[in-house]
Design a protein around this nucleic acid. Structure first.
Lengths: 348, 348
DNA sequence: TATATTTGTTCAAACGTTGGAACAAAAGTA
DNA sequence: TACTTTTGTTCCAACGTTTGAACAAATATA
């Protein structure tokens, strides 16, 4: 059971007494190759268990059929379902998808980009790390001339394709809902405002408050990494305020979970004392007690648009790329954590 | 801003008036190349913004420096932290990691394996889909002669490296704990027993029951996919039993969450009426109300062992591969869902 | 001084596939 | 019959890098 060397088109050619080039053409269904040679080649290829050498053809064709996908962290439903969709669509078109996590670290993200470029990917679909402020590495991708598609966490300044939801509007919908539920003083725990999506959510939050003549104070706005523990820490600070809010809107479900935990520990009734709304609609949000209201971002749709946009760019390499934003509408999923009114009769 | 063609070692060679081969050797720090040529080459390479063509070198060297990692689903802390560790270790050694999800589907898994082999990966690290019973595609990997390392969901019959925890012992620890907490009748919701790890957990559960002279009945054992909804459905069945158990041990936290949900809906007190223990120690388990006791699997350690085993195999290609099981000890994290005794004074 | 060794480089082939040009044979057109 | 077109294939160079062999020059050894 020694290491059998792989069969190549040359081997097939030898068996049939034709040239490798004819074999290649037969396998690629070249119009000038006769039907019978094609059949014979396919037959022999199967017999010899021929596996095409992707490296060789990629080198020759200058195209690797590999697409890199960069996400901050795979362990959320949001990102993993986007990836699933992207894989589905691109696999069907003969592409393989390389997934890499940045772990929200700028440094890791840079290394990842270098690795992907090194691997000669045909394009990159990415959601930026929270930490990322400098765009140098993303510009490096652009400079390479391969398609770059951003989703969720993007940057206008890069002037590339972008798929995401309307963050500004999300905040409006959330605040609208909280006001309806009787909240008069609403805090916001957001991501860092240097990230566009979080900035927009903060802007939306502020504008919505203004619209309803609600107080907008610095002590009610916090920026953090939105991990569970960040939610805990910030919520503690909020609960220490002399003038506690009666509603909290948090830009991520993990952080919302942490915040909920703290509130429970301090025997604060949710939603009666403080109503809570999260973001992303992670599966656990439905499960928490009380269920956490959350903004659904239509992740499959995002993945679908991102993948198809990549395919379009590949198909039309000449087309000039400029900022091309595809914005989806958010949807608020209301659960017990923010449902105060009509409690007895509307909720099952 | 036309498509600048990439610089190759040939360009560097031209600038310096030496041959491409000298350039290649200089870049690879060949001992026979003089210090000054090396420095000059590195300098010029930087000036021309040279990026080595990975495809060409991979083709020539017969080595892609790509490693495929197959997981059932990225959206769990368990898998995503394993991947993180694998990436860390392999990146440091110059490998790039291709992650692919099987979504627990045998068909998708097969396609994924084909895609990875097609991409000429240097090895595959995989956790098998729940559905997978036939091993033909995994044998295909073995036949290729590249390292195959399994983790978590493995198969003895494949006779390859395996990293996982001691599932049989896990069940013993869980049952031991539940018995200590006064449970007399313990049900088990497991994964499908054709998967080795679930079979072992079931075996462990049965043997542990016997050890404690507890009733072991068919109506107390269930097999399912362990998704949240599976947990719900099975738990409903269990609650419909004429003779309800007073403890439930579930082989996955998602399913445990679903079961907990159902119990809450039916106003069953956890842990007083029914104590609950899950598996995997997902972050949300700590957050659920009550917190779900769960078995910690030391995912980082698993990732570390898997990656290092791959590196060892690559380093010693001649070494005969036989079944090589690396088994870690599980650890039960006890939380409120199963803590009945010493409630008042031990729990904070 | 003659010979052996070391040092620094070039040469040439190879990795496996592809695709345009060239070419012979077969078929179609005048 | 002579000429053009079509069909099926071969030829060959290319993709960018690597690597062992070859070789000349410089250095060391006798």
């Amino acid at each position: 059971m020694g290491h059998k060397k792989k069969t190549t088109i040359k081997d097939i050619a030898n068996v049939l007494g034709i040239t490798p080039s004819a074999v290649s053409k037969a396998l690629n269904n070249h119009p000038r190759i006769s039907k019978q040679t094609k059949e014979a080649v396919i037959q022999v290829a199967a017999n010899l268990n021929y596996q095409p050498n992707h490296l060789a053809s990629a080198l020759r064709k200058g195209k690797s059929n590999l697409v890199g996908v960069i996400i901050p962290k795979a362990n959320s439903h949001f990102f993993s379902s986007i990836i699933e969709k992207i894989e589905d669509i691109l696999n069907a078109k003969g592409y393989n998808v390389i997934i890499a996590q940045s772990n929200e670290s700028y440094k890791k993200e840079c290394r990842t980009i270098d690795a992907l470029l090194f691997t000669q990917v045909d394009g990159i679909i990415a959601s930026m790390a929270n930490e990322t402020v400098k765009l140098d590495y993303y510009n490096k991708i652009k400079a390479k001339g391969i398609p770059l598609i951003l989703f969720d966490r993007g940057e206008n300044d890069l002037n590339v394709d972008y798929v995401g939801i309307d963050d500004y509007m999300s905040s409006h919908i959330v605040i609208e809902h909280l006001v309806e539920q009787g909240c008069k003083r609403i805090a916001h725990i957001g991501g860092f405002s240097h990230t566009r999506i979080y900035k927009n959510r903060i802007r939306g939050y502020i504008d919505a408050l203004k619209k309803h003549n609600l107080p907008f104070e610095d002590s009610l706005i916090y920026e953090c990494n939105l991990r569970k523990n960040d939610g805990r820490e910030v919520m503690k600070k909020i609960l220490d305020l002399p003038n506690r809010p009666d509603g909290v809107y948090i830009s991520g479900d993990y952080a919302a979970l942490g915040a909920l935990e703290v509130m429970k520990e301090q025997n604060i009734k949710v939603p009666e004392d403080i109503a809570l709304v999260g973001f992303s609609n992670e599966p656990f949000s439905a499960i928490a007690t009380p269920g956490i209201s959350s903004v659904e971002q239509h992740s499959e749709k995002i993945g679908e648009l991102a993948a198809n946009t990549f395919l379009r760019r590949i198909a039309n390499p000449e087309e000039e790329v400029t900022l091309n934003k595809m914005i989806l509408n958010p949807e608020l999923i209301v659960r017990a954590s923010s449902l105060r009114k009509s409690k007895g009769h509307l909720t099952k």
